[in-house]
């Protein structure tokens, strides 16, 4: 998996996410794009006059769904990594657009382990770290629920010890 280490002078974070996350990302794509595709198919079947119009979005959504279910999760699994220390949280996320993101613990405002319905089903959790900047938060999805909870607790403890008002 050399795909993750292409930013010169920057090493990737150490931990990978859970393998179950692949299933989670697949299901997410299915839940979001699936209903739209079904709706389009029903419209295509029932509404003759609109067929020349509907065929383009129909194909588009079908491609998005296929890529979202079969390609994107594996790609993400190959890329996503994360790491936390007593100084900072470091994450590498994305697939087509990859992002390396570092937030120092001294600027952290909240740390949460968030669990959506799909994640609860799979025993996963998202570690969400927010800073005072509206766009500076870090989301690390696809962690084991215990790992995420433990990390959240650890980070919260450290963040409280760090002096300063986080702006």
């Amino acid at each position: 998996m050399t795909v993750t280490t292409t930013m010169p002078q920057l090493r990737p974070p150490t931990h990978r996410v859970e393998r179950r996350a692949v299933l989670w990302w697949s299901l997410q794509s299915l839940v979001f794009a699936g209903p739209i595709l079904i709706g389009l198919i029903i419209a295509y079947v029932l509404w003759d006059a609109a067929r020349p119009w509907l065929i383009v979005p129909l194909i588009g959504v079908a491609v998005v769904l296929l890529v979202g279910v079969f390609v994107q999760p594996w790609w993400r699994y190959a890329v996503h990594r994360w790491e936390d220390t007593d100084q900072a949280v470091y994450a590498l996320t994305g697939w087509l657009v990859r992002e390396w993101r570092v937030a120092p613990l001294s600027r952290i405002q909240t740390v949460d382990a968030v669990r959506g319905p799909l994640e609860q089903m799979l025993g996963l959790a998202t570690l969400r770290v927010t800073t005072a900047s509206s766009s500076g938060s870090i989301d690390i999805g696809g962690l084991d629920k215990d790992v995420a909870a433990e990390a959240a607790e650890r980070l919260t403890t450290i963040a409280q010890l760090t002096p300063g008002d986080a702006t």
Partner: peptide, 20 residues
């Protein structure tokens, strides 16, 4: 000193062109 989070982003096209 006001910078809190720092991020480096790279799309497929940027990667091909050697940009970030």
């Amino acid at each position: 000193k006001a910078v809190s989070t720092v991020a480096i982003r790279q799309s497929l096209l940027q990667r091909r062109l050697g940009l970030a």
